[in-house]
Amino acid sequence: MALNDKSQPRATVGSLFKEYRVRLERFLARRAYRPVEASDLAQEVYMRLLRFPSERVIERPQAYLYRIASNVVHDFNMRHKEEQVTFDSDIAEEFAAHTADVWASDPGDQLIAAEELQRMLMKLPRAQLTALLLHKRDGMTVPEIAKLLGVPLDTVKSRIAFALALCRASARDGSKR
């Protein structure tokens, strides 16, 4: 990995992202509901981030954050390896004993997904819900949404940010109960 390659910062960020993002995001989507692990993770990431030379972090903070977090997640997974459920070719028998969700590539993800999402959406004000749906479901970019709705870029950004924050808060509060 060309960490010092300043000539093509965008390309480097891109490849860093690609490498870590999917794996990490999947993990995070699941762990949002296990606050203890999530804060352990954050603590560890924080410590490692502080150890990183700050001028490097400033160049690509998000890429480094994801990379560090991804490494921490990897370490976590190694530690918990024996807890993980694995499937072998004798899958049919095992399947009969489990319910449908075991087939999802990411069981935790699936379990919470449908119901939880629905609950979150209901809490969102109309304008925020609209922006979120256009962005996430219909795959429109922020500038496209701004154009369609006839509002400034910043408004779209803060509407989607509001929706994200509310969903996050509702996940956090839900897991406390």
């Binding site: 995001e25 949002a32 502080l50 972090v57 479901r137 994200l164 969903c167």
Partner: peptide
């Protein structure tokens, strides 16, 4: 970068938002 280094909570929340954002990719 400065914002991130403020506290582990900042990191936790940013990572959590990343997770929530991914989850919302499957919205409706």
């Amino acid at each position: 970068a400065r914002w991130l280094r403020r506290s582990p909570e900042h990191i936790e929340e940013f990572l959590a938002i990343t997770g929530v954002s991914r989850k919302l990719d499957k919205i409706d």
